[in-house]
Nucleic acid binder design. Structure first.
Lengths: 124, 124
DNA sequence: CCTTGACCTAGAGTAAGGTCTAGGGTGTAT
DNA sequence: ATACACCCTAGACCTTACTCTAGGTCAAGG
């Protein structure tokens, strides 16, 4: 799979994919003889994982640490698991904050709705 | 209320508060004769609102638009409500994405747990 | 009086995460 | 054989949202 196809399939810009590889977030991608990237299923799995984690706002540095641990063997499993658990907690915390914001927005929207109805009635 | 107190109470840095005023996100704050900011209840309400919305990731530009509309009178209520509704949708969308990430993390954490137990048993 | 601490402004600097440009190679359809 | 679509790298540039620095005012305590 070439980079443009990956880009379209996962809706990540070509530049971003190359950037991820360059900074070591995406483990080195296979190349054809002419140097062109040829994404195999392992690279694709990383792409999917990175996309999902980045969507949730996990910082690149944390993901890089995780990727590095995965690449350095089985005795890093405890450490890897800890990263995932910690980040899950961070996400859950953010979701709770966002829910508070949604609650406030719901309240404010409700107030606007009532005020707008009042204005309509006044026009009658 | 002086800036340092606002900063402590709402856990926003003094620099950030001044920055928000400077860029027009926080409507102009009252001053004492000597030029020192004196936050009244209206400013405080804005601080609380901005903090809540920024926590949820709403961009400063969108919030600035909202603030501008509030300051330009009652006939902008429809437009203001639209901003809030749109942003609520954005937040709900992000929360759904984050839930997907949490699901994936739960799965992965579970796999690590099982593997780690297996390793322990092998050591027996 | 003078030092300390809190306040002020303007403007430069920083961090995170991309995005874009210049310059160049390759493969294939006309 | 040349034009077009993709691919490559290195490195500059950009956006968002702060954060910090320099230089200065002012009020209270020792």
């Amino acid at each position: 799979m070439k980079i443009s196809e990956v880009s379209k399939t996962y809706d990540i810009s070509i530049d971003t994919i190359r950037y991820y590889e360059r900074i070591g977030l995406l483990p080195t991608v296979n190349r054809l003889e002419n140097g062109i990237r040829d994404f195999n299923s392992i690279s694709i799995e990383w792409i999917e994982f990175i996309k999902c984690m980045r969507n949730a706002g996990l910082p690149i540095e944390v993901l890089k640490d995780y990727v590095t641990l995965v690449q350095s063997g089985d005795d890093t499993k405890e450490e890897r698991k800890k990263i995932l658990v910690d980040q899950r907690d961070v996400i859950l915390g953010k979701m709770a904050e966002m829910q508070e914001t949604v609650d406030l927005l719901n309240y404010k929207i409700d107030v606007y709705e009532k005020e707008l109805v009042k204005t309509e009635n006044n026009l009658k």
